[in-house]
Amino acid sequence: MYRLTTFRPKSFFAEFFKSLFFVDLIKGLIVTFYYQKPSENITEQYPKERPRVAERFRGAPRLNKDPETGETLCIACKLCQLACPIDCIEVGSEKVEKKNVLTTFTYDIGHCMYCGLCEDACPTPALELTQDFELASYNRDFIWDRTRLENGPEIVKYKK
């Protein structure tokens, strides 16, 4: 073990006058004075400026639709239902002309752990976890049905 600091004995008068004239106090005051730079501040004014999250951030789920036809991209294969470790997803389908067509799709965001396994399991770009993290609500309607999932996240814009 070696000492990390060396003790150099300072002269008695230097120490005495430093404490008499509050030298260390004044040094501290100067430091805090120069810390005041509100123009360089990086505080994010939250409701006006939202934090920028990564593209791969796993937030609220969304059922995507085809941009040209407006029909859902989901093929009702139920792979997301199988992949979910918590069984949050319920997919309902019916056979129309020998093809599975999606009827109901419910997603329980209360139990969901946003692991993204359903997004990975989906063979089409239908199920996607968006970057919306503001999921707090005033009531307990945690089971989102198909319309709400297709609408996607609604971000309230604050002007001030």
Binding site: T32, F33, Y35, Q36, K37, P38, N41, T43, Q45
Partner: peptide, 13 residues
């Protein structure tokens, strides 16, 4: 406000 500026934050805004 002044204490906030000295602590590198912004205070009530």
């Amino acid at each position: 406000k002044v204490v906030a500026f000295m602590q590198a934050r912004l205070g009530p805004m």
